[in-house]
Design a protein around this nucleic acid. Structure first.
Length: 473
RNA sequence: GGCGGUAUAGCCAAGUGGUAAGGCAGAGGUCUGCAAAACCUUCAUCGUCGGUUCGAAUCCGAUUACCGCCUCCA
């Protein structure tokens, strides 16, 4: 039975989808004014891994994740680059797709953009105004937070405590237009030269929170299963989404709220953010780090735990991933001399490992225990690969299971291409030298190949080689 | 000030009452002509103090440190 930690109740709850066999989930995507940073990647990887686990369990997942393609940061970025907001959006949405593809993050079922839903956003706001939850003020429209009874239920904040909160980002003019400091903007009137759309309240653009309420309900219905995002979005973003959506529909917005933990950078263990100057983009990291290593590193940390982005941890992940790849290679190599038949005992052990894997993952996606089962399977694969006689069906079964399990983490094994004629000729020559006990020549060949990044391995079934992955980190 | 998180071996990390999973790194060994890979063995009493209990990393109280949210933020 799958359990998830619901921020709303601060408890692990049994996951029951609205429609049996289907998971409808919405995950807040990035504002596309720059390359995504590792924090964005963490969120995308965490929820992609969750999605993959649902799919592994046989669910059909409708996964919607937005692009915020208009807001203050977009306007600023466009101005600085001396271009338009849509041009900036297009550029960095492309970059997002490139980066997330490299990290083997499945594309969302739907990637809606705020600016493609202006009509729906305006209608949504009009509805809130009509219901008395929103009011116009000098071209802006604000939400009456205090009118929504459940305000604060997600972040467990008392609305009266918010007023005395240390809000360092208030816009004095905006505060003056609000009836109450806790109100938030649904629609912002345009200043001169800003991108804008016509509305009943004049030229303007949507506030940040409203787009997610509109797009999630548009594609997934008034009530859907899972809403995800970074921990920092709990308040105010998700709190506001609930207030907007539930005020409009009168229905529960999302049944389960999942929030991923942060990435911290460096030894000071601080949250990564632009203002702290420890901002790292995926685009830059992937210049020197194998995307599979970064993916493995992040997807094998449970989504709620913080991740320390350090060279040591990355190296650890690389070693672990290499270990799994090697186990896969070792067993794949035996496919060619495997005999017909199967080994029921081995297959029974594999089923047990897989059952343990499911038990672990069912507990709020406990990937640390899940990956421990994968290591166990890798060990079994290695031990089996060393047997003098192996059976084809069992070898294939181990390989299939191993492949399926690492796929949950977004890992795809590299297939060895073992048919390089030049290398094979040298291996043959070395084999002959070894048979002649000419080890000097034999070692010379091995060193020569090593210098080219080719590592030889002598096995009872013959000599294998693989490319040395070291240095790709 | 309000709310929340974390603290387990050199590193990452599991574990919510029954006597410390797993991985990396290290050490020793098996295999090998030597290697590589793999496998085997080995490596902690759980931030601090106090309490409950036959028994606590796990429950309670206190305390320390670090981190996050409180309308930019994944």
């Amino acid at each position: 039975m799958l359990k998830v930690f619901n921020t709303l109740t601060r408890q692990k709850e049994v996951f029951t989808p609205i429609t049996s066999g289907i998971v409808n989930m919405y995950v807040c995507g990035p504002t596309v004014y720059n390359y995504i940073h590792i924090g964005n990647a963490r969120s995308a990887i965490a929820f992609d891994t969750i999605r993959r686990y649902f799919e592994y369990k046989g669910y059909h997942v409708n996964y919607v994740s937005n692009f915020t393609d208009v807001d203050d940061k977009m306007i600023k970025a466009a101005k600085e680059a001396n271009t338009t907001v849509p041009a900036i959006a297009d550029r960095f949405i492309d970059a997002f797709m490139t980066d997330t593809t490299a990290l083997n993050i499945e594309p969302a079922t739907k990637h809606p953009r705020a600016t493609e839903n202006i009509k729906e956003i305006i209608a949504f706001i009009q509805d809130l105004v009509a219901k008395g939850y929103a009011y116009e003020a000098e071209g802006d429209v604000y939400y009456r937070a205090r009118k929504f009874e459940g305000y604060g239920k997600l972040s467990h904040q008392n609305i009266d405590d918010l007023e005395v909160g240390a809000s360092q980002h208030v816009d004095a003019e905006e505060v003056n237009r609000k009836e109450d400091p806790v109100d938030f903007a649904l629609w912002k009137g345009a200043k001169a030269d800003e991108i804008s759309w016509p509305s009943p309240w004049g030229e303007g653009r949507p506030g940040w929170h409203i787009e997610c309420s509109v797009m999630s309900t548009k594609y997934l219905g008034d009530t859907f299963d899972i809403h995800g995002g970074g921990q920092d979005l709990t308040f105010p973003h998700h709190e506001n989404e609930i207030a907007q959506s539930e005020a409009k529909t009168g229905q529960t917005f999302a049944n389960y709220w999942l929030h991923n933990g942060f990435v911290t950078v460096g030894d000071d263990n601080e949250k990564m953010s632009k203002s702290l100057g420890n901002f790292v983009t995926v685009h830059d990291i992937l210049k020197t780090v194998d995307p599979q290593v970064l993916r493995f590193f992040m997807s094998t940390t449970q989504y709620r735990r913080p991740i320390q982005y350090t060279q040591d941890n990355l190296t650890d992940a690389q070693n672990n991933l290499k270990h799994l790849q090697t186990a896969y290679n070792n067993l794949t190599y035996r496919l060619k001399d495997a005999e017909a038949g199967s080994d029921p005992k081995i297959e029974q052990e594999i089923r047990q490992i897989e059952a343990d894997f499911v038990d672990s993952m069912d507990d709020d996606f406990n990937v640390q225990n899940g990956i421990a089962q994968v290591y166990e399977l890798a060990k079994l694969a290695n031990v089996y690969a060393e047997r003098p006689v192996v059976f084809k069906t069992s070898v294939a079964f181990i390989l299939k299971t191993l492949t399926e399990l690492v796929n949950v983490f977004g890992i795809v094994f590299k297939e060895e291409s073992l048919n390089d004629e030049g290398i094979q000729a040298l291996i043959d020559e070395r084999l002959k030298a070894r048979q002649d006990r000419n080890f000097e020549r034999s070692d010379e060949i091995r060193e020569q190949l090593k210098a080219q990044g080719i590592i030889l391995e002598d096995t009872p079934q013959g000599t294998r080689w693989h490319r040395d992955e070291k240095g790709t980190l």
